[in-house]
Design a protein around this nucleic acid. Structure first.
Length: 662
RNA sequence: GCCGGUGUGGCGCAGUUGGCAGCGCAGGCGAUUUGUAAUCGUCAGGUCGGGGGUUCGAAUCCCUCCACCGGCACCA
């Protein structure tokens, strides 16, 4: 056959001479595409532009400004980095270097146990730019298993990868080795890397990258194995895209809740308390109280019962629950009391709620029984894990456990998911996807049958919710699978928020029972759920989502009242008194400073409304309104009208009746 | 826990080859009386993360511990 018929993504076909490669197709389609092309997808497989095409192939050309294109150029940039490092540190061993979100990394072992310093990043960067200027080709070569081992004989990590695949370990689809064929990419006579590809045609196509940081990383992610030196970089298709990403990182840094928490006087981590232990200051405390009160009101409306449990318990509770078997290393060590009785600080609330369920005989008529508690828990997080309010050693969960029959669980879960999403939307989060986490192999308890039913039920409910759902294989808890709600924040980052877990195990371990309509003792199903996760972490996410500009209903201080001169102070306090009488959080600033300075301070403190009052206002019973985010103040607003306006704004965001579906 | 980095008034920073710990903001006090993002002056505030060592002398050099930051691992 002398011509090939190729199918393009738009449904059209194109004829090319036999023996044509993907790059020939790109050039045939257009000169510009020929120049832009980085790789191709042939019959849904990503591959090099040099790939030879066959009659009937479905081909699309991969260009830089696409997910696949960025992946290819990031992965190729990682290879360039590996070459740069081996040039600078002859004898360096390199392990793996994949593309990741926003960039790439590569793991190295330097000769003599040397470590990268920050200055080394600059040297590596410069060397990489030299390699890019040399415009070295990426040449794919395939070798036999034995030749592959010989080629990489001086690279022990590569040898391990090659032989590992051969021995059937880690034969996943991302492998560089398939069957007996080992593929590599060669840039120069002296540098090649084991790789499945694809890569850009030559290093000259790269260059919009920045090396970010060096970090330690365990070989193969296993903490029992050697720790390597990992260099992270970011890489993009254009200088503009790179600049935009760096700007995004700066924006994220400006929103950092640890910084804003201090600047806005919300919370702190006194070193006297220890790592991961926070205190909430009055302003942060107000935000927290508003959030908690709102959550309570929504839970009341959804037929939850409110319960309370102590912070410590005898060990038997966590022996029965099984948590001591799994998590004792992550719990605060026990205190020995009463002749050797061990008491533990509680790391979670569920066993307490089971005891409340078991406190008396339960009838099917009581189910579903929904027990809610803002439960403070303590977990001995490893020292390297604590992070601001998002990973702490003491936190409060908005925790509830729902006891229901097997027949009820599907509807209960479906209703719960709606409840969760509604509540999160009320806090201004509205871009979600779900994650379905299944049985963790090797660390799960319970029968296969129970797990199957639980996973299937959750999958069904997730599907019915009509929200994008991704599978998290093996990510469930030891006692059951879970759905977690992932929320995207104002700058597009995702945070795992609510988790909903289905559990057949704890009721069995505690021998929880209810009496059915047939007068039989039956075992209830338990649903664990936390909507905020931890209140502390939720607040951290909201601080960053809003960049500290909390909506008025949550703002610690809603209004600040300033007089133009101090002889307006009496009226200032009068206005403040009326605002507070209307239930608004108002503060007067009567410091003897110029108005501009006091306005500036209020703006920096992100107060939603600044009221300025002067002679005209005293005379007319009005205020000047300077709203956050607006640079044109309103003058002469009637005080009662302002109060009504603000009360309405707060009520619309903060009441269950109005916010639900409104 | 592991790898790397950083610790100087509340915050942000400066501090030469080891030689009297400084600046700005914030804070107190006084003056100023201001219509929409910084009035002026003045005062106070530090065991330079803790401990040990070297030295005539340490914020500075060495050891060690702690905390924090970035990752890894972990995350009921």
């Amino acid at each position: 056959m002398s011509t090939l018929t190729l199918h393009l993504p738009d449904g059209s076909t194109r004829e090319l001479p036999a023996g044509s490669r993907a790059i020939d197709l790109a050039r045939a389609i257009g000169r510009r595409l020929g120049q832009d092309a980085l790789a191709a997808t042939v019959n849904d497989v990503l591959c090099d532009l040099a790939t030879e095409l066959h009659d009937g192939d479905r081909v699309s050309i991969v260009t830089p400004a696409s997910e696949e294109g960025r992946d290819v150029l990031r992965h190729s940039t990682a290879h360039v980095m590996a070459q740069a490092v081996t040039r600078l540190w002859p004898g360096a061993h390199f392990a793996i270097g994949p593309a990741i979100d926003d960039g790439f990394y590569y793991d190295f072992r330097l000769p003599g146990g040397a470590r990268f310093s920050d200055e080394d990043l600059t040297r590596i960067d410069e060397e990489m730019r030299r390699i890019i200027a040399e415009d070295q080709p990426f040449v794919r070569e395939e070798h036999s298993y034995e030749d592959g081992l010989a080629l990489f004989a001086d690279q022990p990590f590569k040898v391990e990868i090659i032989s590992g695949v051969r021995e059937g370990r880690g034969g996943e689809d991302e492998s560089e080795v398939s069957g007996s064929v080992v593929s590599s990419y060669r840039n120069t006579e002296s540098f090649r890397d084991l790789c499945r590809g694809p890569h850009v045609p030559s290093t000259g196509r790269l260059g919009h990258f920045a090396l970010m940081r060096v970090a330690g990383a365990y070989w193969r992610g296993d903490e029992k194995r050697e720790q390597l030196q990992r260099v992270y970089g970011t890489a993009w298709e254009s200088a503009a895209a790179l600049a935009q990403h760096l700007e995004f990182l700066e924006e994220a840094a400006r929103r950092d809740h640890r910084i804003l928490g201090r600047d806005l006087d919300l919370f702190s981590f006194p070193s006297e308390l220890g790592p991961g232990l926070s205190v909430f200051h009055p302003r942060g405390g107000t935000i927290r109280r508003v959030i908690e009160e709102y959550s309570r009101s929504r839970h009341v409306a959804a037929d939850y019962e409110f319960v309370y449990s102590p912070h410590i318990t005898k060990s038997v509770l966590f022996e029965t629950s099984g948590h001591l078997d799994w998590f004792s290393d992550d719990m605060y060590p026990p205190m020995e009391l009463d002749e050797g009785q061990a008491y533990y600080l509680k790391p979670m609330n569920c066993p307490f709620h089971v005891l409340i369920f078991k406190a008396r005989q339960r009838s099917f008529r009581e189910l579903p029984l929904r027990l809610f508690e803002f439960g403070s828990v303590y977990r001995y997080e490893k020292s390297g894990a604590v992070h601001g309010l998002t990973r702490v050693r003491g936190m409060t969960q908005d925790d509830a456990h729902i006891f229901c029959t097997r027949g009820q669980m599907r509807d209960e879960l479906a209703g719960l998911l709606t409840f969760v999403l509604d509540l999160l939307r009320d806090f201004g989060l509205n871009d979600f996807y779900l994650e379905l986490s299944t049985r963790p192999e090797g660390k799960a308890v319970g029968s296969d049958e129970d797990w199957k039913v639980a996973e299937a039920t959750l999958a069904e409910v997730a599907a019915a919710a009509g929200i994008e759902t991704v599978l998290d294989e093996g990510g469930g808890a030891f006692y059951g699978p879970k759905i977690s709600v992932q929320a995207r924040d104002a700058i597009g980052r995702t945070h795992q928020l609510s988790t909903i877990q289905l559990d057949f195990q704890l009721p069995a371990r505690f021998e929880a029972e209810y009496v059915s309509s047939e007068n039989q003792r039956e075992r209830p199903v338990m649903i664990h759920r936390a909507l905020f996760g931890s209140v502390e972490r939720f607040i951290a996410i909201l601080v960053e989502h809003y960049a500290g500009n909390f909506p008025t209903w949550m703002a610690p201080e809603q209004v600040r009242v300033l007089g133009v001169r101090d002889d307006h102070d009496e009226y200032v306090h009068e206005v403040r008194r009326r605002l507070r009488a209307a239930g608004l959080r108002a503060v007067a600033d009567d410091a003897h400073e110029p108005l501009g300075a006091r306005i500036r301070r209020a703006k920096i403190e992100k107060v939603p409304y600044i009221l300025v009052v002067g002679d005209d206002d005293v005379r007319a019973n009005t205020v000047g309104v300077n709203s956050r985010g607006s640079d044109t103040p309103e003058r002469g607003v009637d005080v009662d009208e302002f109060i009504a306006r603000l009360s309405d704004e707060v009520a619309r965001h903060g009441s269950p009746e109005l916010s639900r579906g409104a």
